[in-house]
Design a protein around this nucleic acid. Sequence first.
DNA 1: TGTACATCAGTGAACGCGCGTTCACTGATGTAC
DNA 2: TGTACATCAGTGAACGCGCGTTCACTGATGTAC
Lengths: 239, 239
Amino acid sequence: MPATSHAGGEIRTPRERARAQTIADIIGLGRRHLAERGAAALSLRAVARDLGVVSSAVYRYVGSRDELLTLLLVDAYNDLGDAVDAAVKAVPAEEFRGRFAALARAVRGWALREPARYGLLFGSPVPGYQAPAERTTAPGTRVVISLVQILDAAHRAARLAGRGPSAVPAPLAADLEAIRRELGVEVPDALLARGTLVWASLFGAVSFEVFGQYGAGTFSAPDELFEHHIAVLADLAGL
Amino acid sequence: MPATSHAGGEIRTPRERARAQTIADIIGLGRRHLAERGAAALSLRAVARDLGVVSSAVYRYVGSRDELLTLLLVDAYNDLGDAVDAAVKAVPAEEFRGRFAALARAVRGWALREPARYGLLFGSPVPGYQAPAERTTAPGTRVVISLVQILDAAHRAARLAGRGPSAVPAPLAADLEAIRRELGVEVPDALLARGTLVWASLFGAVSFEVFGQYGAGTFSAPDELFEHHIAVLADLAGL
DNA sequence: TGTACATCAGTGAACGCGCGTTCACTGATGTAC
DNA sequence: TGTACATCAGTGAACGCGCGTTCACTGATGTAC
């Protein structure tokens, strides 16, 4: 944290500009290494090599390998969040089901384009690395929040259908109430619990496809399969 | 492959017994390393150290690090498969919904007990490692096969309810037909497609819990949440 | 505008570590006659 | 049953590699007077 950085994040001196550029380069190179060799193989020395600089120089910009990982994690979460937000906003606000489909397609599209970064976010945890919650939670919750807001908007418009049992065991109800309060949302218990499952299911389907759990060649029509899943999940969510 | 090994896998000479024991020890130690440090950090040298032997000695038993990974992968798939089979068989065959619930609980229970091994099977692929399909496919499909057989048994007993659209786009229908043929199963298109989603959803929910995607402390009642998910997924599957 | 000083970026060497894999070898265990 | 030979397990040294991180340093860029 240089003392010369200014509120609002504007960059003034050439030195500061160069510094910001170098950090951006480091993140860009880290992204590439992540994509090519995976998170566990991410190395500061390799990044330094590609940056054309001696390995110790990188320590001017990032404090440690773990800090670089955190930067890349936040970067990836925001990339995904941006893709999802853009896709959702491209559909009129009242088309709740369409917005949900757009969200789902955006997640899948990003994951297929960026399998290694997707793996960093939603795969097995990186051994020996613990993400700092205070920097990671906000970007890491953008997609769920977007999903819950679609459900909430549909519910407020009385367009969210509650099928099946509406009662939920007490301890779970308490958790759901806390979530409603934190997100400023009104979706009732049963629908919120279903929303949680829809969320997990969406990522389960995407993970299976990206991580190759469907055997090679089992599904020659993965797009159709996913569209079918979207339709079923939208029904399940009550949209 | 020693020339002295016999058909049926019985072990005769003391030397063969010792060899089998050492291989078992290596797998056991590998399991522990996997659990403690993750797949990417699995090392033959570390296993050799714990085995009390010089690192090159391990090469008498496994040809390379990747081969050890394959052994551990198969070992883990079979462990999970055994747990699931045992749980399913403990429920009477006609209780299709109960069998499904048992399967789901068995998967979750195993995953929570063995997070690192679960991550090896269902998390991000290990960078630089390609599982050999011919040794991995059979154990790796035990759980899906068990799931599909529950659905098929219910369908043959006319106890599988088809809700929602029953038509499926042609390319997807072709994939589903191939699956039916391979597994010797009769579940119709729409239900089989839903079964695929249920399968992915189950693992999505388990992965979220095991990999910590639900924020820390968001769900204080994970058991209740999962039971809710089981009920919704059983409905979804038509059970 | 010009000079003296402070700040910063990047260097290069070093520390200590772990890894996979190969190879020639010593001894012990088994096998054939 | 006894001996000669083959097979195997395990050793120890070595190859070449990459890693994260620290540290004293040079030289360029900025800042204060």
